[in-house]
Every structure is written in C-alpha cells, then in structure tokens.
Design a binder for these strands. Sequence first.
DNA 1: ATGTCGTCCGCGGGACGA
Length: 280
Amino acid sequence: MRIATWNVNSLRARVGRVEEWLGYARPDILCLQETKLADAAFPALAFGALGYESAHWGQGQWNGVAILSRIGIADVSAGFDLSAASTGPDDATGEARVLWATCGGVRVGSVYVPNGRMVGTSHYEAKLHWLECLRRQLAERDPAEPLVVCGDFNVAPDDRDVWDPTKLHGATHVSPPEREALRALAEWGLVDAFRRRYSQDRLYSWWDYRAGDFHQHRGLRIDLVLATATLAETTSFALIDRNARKGKAPSDHAPLLVDFEYPPASHEASSPTTVNSASP
DNA sequence: ATGTCGTCCGCGGGACGA
C-alpha cells in the first residue's frame, strides 16, 4: 500500500501537477494540504477520472485538507470534536486543518499544522495548542490499529531535518516545545515512517521559494507520514520526490510517499503465477 | 537582498500569509 502526502500550496494553481504526479507515482492514498479551496471548488471529478475517490474539507482562501484514495474511502470526519473553549484570538482548532477517513482498512489523517509564525507570539501558542488537540484526538483511538497521520507538521523533528540549525536556533519549526509535541505523538505510538528507511541529514521536503533555496539545498523536512507500529514495521520504501519540486509552477513542498507491505501477504494465498515465477 | 509565491479585491498593484 502506497501512502503519500503533499502540501500543494493552492490546489487551483497545482491541479495539473497533482494529476501528472498521480499518473506516475500512483499512490493508493494521497493526503493533500493547503488546497485553499471551498468544498464546491474541489476538483473531485478530475481525480475521479484518474480512479480516485476523495474527501475534502476546505474553507476557501486559506488552509484546506483532502484525502484521495483508489482503495475506498469511508467514515470521513473533519476537524476536532471540541468541547473545550478556544484558547485565544488566534486559536486555529476550528480551521480546515485535519481530515480523517478509512481507506483500505487503514485509518488515515491528513493534517496541516499551523505555522506558528514567531516563537512567543499568540500564533505560536495556538500552534502548540493545536498539536495538543491532535494528541488528544489520537488518545481516543487504539494505537494497535493500522493508522497514519500524514501532512505538513510545520515542525522539523530533529537537526538532521534542518539545513542550518544554527541559523534557525530560536525560530519556529525547531523549538523544543514544538519538537516535544511531536515526541508526545510518538509516545502514543506513531513512528516517522521515512526514518525507517533513511537516517541521514539533508533530506528535505520544503524549500523557500526565495533566494534559490531549493537549488542550494536549504530546506526543512517538515512533511511526515507517521504510522502506528503495525504499519510502520512493514515500511518497504520511502521517497521525497524532489522532481515534483522542479520545473514550472511547483509547490514549495515536495510530495512524500511511503510503501507499506500491508495488509501482510497470506502464506496460503500463493497463486500458480507466483509459483511459476519463483526462482529455482 | 526586503530575495517568491499564493490569496484577495478588482482591473492595477498593494496587503497579507507562508
């Protein structure tokens, strides 16, 4: 099962590139962030023509999250089930930033974590609160189930994920409280699937449009596929597709895809074809 | 480099967010 995530920075501006990418990457599930569309403007028919069912939660100009699936999509749920009051003027928990669906037996979340702007601002506090709400939402589920949370977390998990930690020291995306919020998700049972396959630094998923940052390798790894152990242990392949960050009118993020050997192959289901093609 | 994109309004280019 191939699961992918991509912050497209406006789906209206990017739909052609997303269609092109679906055509060659062929994920079973694709989570999108920053569609920046109202639900009525979501191009469900275009994705349908490529074999994908979809769910979208948009709010127009900002944010917007979606899930595309060619292995079924059910039990769609948008947002947090919040009984708690908002925490401030810049509270983001009601914004279109989290969408859930069940696809091929896997519970899938597509998330767009608030940016936070500057450490110490109300936007930064709202980011930490939003991440705590995500943790609470997960805590209501069973970490033994196959589940992934995919998206733009706007946090680089550790210094390998940052082009120059000294330049970003004290900034958002790398601050200890933000990283602690990711660790809290890991403590619940989520594993960074990309890190099951790669341990080196300089493997980024986002580059600023400005100053030639992409070509100078000045980026951050902030787009993640976090999976529960039952899935994560089957990770067979992962890739940040830098080619999708090149060329005409790219998003500032590259898509991340992860292959899981899930559901596990049954030992009793080998077909004659499999037997005939086996090595001697 | 205050470096680039996307949105909006609204018809030219400024304001804002990332």
